[in-house]
Design a protein around this nucleic acid. Structure first.
Lengths: 263, 263
DNA sequence: TATCATATGAATAGTATGAAGAATAAAAAA
DNA sequence: TTTTTTATTCTTCATACTATTCATATGATA
């Protein structure tokens, strides 16, 4: 009389842009479900998750699958398992927010103005500097990649959906051009920020066209080997992007507030 | 006639400073062993790991444990498993180098001059900016934490071993003072850099004493709310630290070269 | 005959389950 | 208060079975 399949085992409709983690399999859906609930506060830090037996029954999966999922979450710093005590959520300070999965869970439900600020704080530290390094170190092939991405952006700049991919590629190429693998691992951060932008850009008629000249300027400076110029140009681009996102979030929040007042 | 325990199941003598991942259990040792071998190039990207059955036999663990380990590594972007094909190492660009474990594997065996450059490039982007934010946002308790760390550094500055802990705490406190969780997750990066420093600082008679005035200056500026000053002071501190490490690496490499020539 | 589609089979990871072990917090006893 | 016991929970192992995918062979068709 086991009450299986209480949760449907369908994976979250995860906004996949391009490089998103290609994890597949039953255990990946469990990782997603539990990870999302932890990050979004269903299980606060310090609290114990349901026991293994309870969880398997609720999720309708075997212990094998559940244990694999728990171990993955532990590897990302979210939980810690011990006999007798159970599996507990670790303090937020131990979570690896730069992990692509954690990052996506963190911003899956929606973002506040503070969330936007946090994301762009880090982008502003990383990307302009990366552009400067890119200008000094990029190989000709990488410059070609950058220009290819730019060309595709120009081609599809009216179609919000199709614009996302080359835009992401543009920024990630710059990170890769630094030749610094640590910086390259921040690609997920940029991806998250761009996904936010595109989710909110309904408000933004005229699509992403207005950002094109700024991107062009960045690419030109990098190709010319002008580190300082590239740095400055990318900083302007990020400032603009943040302003766009911030405005969208404000609009959305205001509309929601109005709706709630009316009803 | 199973040839078990071919590998001893002892965990790597992992330099644990403070916040290092508290993972325990048999599967964690397997994660370490395989992860280290992948990151250090024993299994190049694109190559398949031994089949599950072979691995379990070689490592002397059950399939359960091995699978948990593989899933954790997949969660860090290192590998990808598919039926029939086996488990393959993913391209380096997909590895999450900012994961604390990956970071520690990356620099476990030793560092080159380029490694030092990469680490400090990122620190230089992050920490001075963080100090500026910290100066604006820190709570009184956090300022007290920072001063406490500084006091302990002053107290034990002659003992290289004991100096490491408060030094790490000092830098991580600054990251936390930004109130930006994403930045906080870069703590592992700083930890790795400091571990490198301390591993190499045998060359450095007089211990870490010379860095104390610089740390004091940073703390003072932050406490005074002087963001620009704190930023500048921390930049100087990092430049000095990099110079120390760079020199140590050079010395070590030169000595090694001499040894090899003699023998 | 050559080519394409379709079945068959083998290899591998994926999932499920039962049972024994080890660790530890809490309760009970000294 | 200290020690011992107990119960709970994760941990590990062993094994059976399933699902996926690639390679090969087979057969149909042009």
């Amino acid at each position: 009389m086991k009450n299986k399949k209480l949760f449907s085992a369908t994976r979250l409709p995860r906004f996949a842009l391009a490089t998103a983690g290609a994890a597949s399999g039953l255990h990946a859906t469990v990782v997603d479900q539990i990870g999302l609930r932890i990050v979004q506060g269903d299980f606060p830090p310090g609290e114990a998750l349901p026991t293994a037996d309870d969880s398997t029954e609720m999720l309708g999966v075997s212990r094998t699958v559940l244990r694999e999922a728990i171990k993955v979450l532990a590897g990302k710093g979210l939980v810690e398992s011990r006999p007798r005590t159970g599996t507990r959520v670790r303090p937020r300070a131990d979570w690896n927010f730069l992990d692509p999965d954690v990052l996506s869970w963190r911003y899956a439900a929606g973002v506040s103005a503070d969330d936007v600020k946090a994301l762009f704080e880090l982008r502003r530290a990383i990307e302009p500097m990366s552009a400067a390094l890119a200008a000094q170190r990029a190989t000709p092939e990488q410059v070609a990649d950058l220009n290819a991405a730019l060309a595709e952006m120009e081609e599809v700049c009216d179609d919000g959906e199709r614009f996302a991919k080359p835009d992401l590629l543009f920024h990630q190429t710059i990170l890769r051009m630094t030749g610094n693998e640590l910086i390259g691992s921040l690609a997920a951060l940029v991806e998250t920020a761009l996904i936010m932008s595109f989710r909110l850009s309904n408000d933004n008629p005229g699509g992403q066209r207005h950002s094109l000249p700024l991107h062009r300027e960045v690419a030109r400076k990098i190709a010319a080997g002008d580190g300082a110029g590239a740095q400055k140009a990318l900083l302007v681009l990020i400032d603009n992007a943040e302003e766009d996102v911030r405005r969208s979030v404000e609009n959305r929040n205001r509309r929601r507030a109005e709706r709630e007042q009316t009803s």
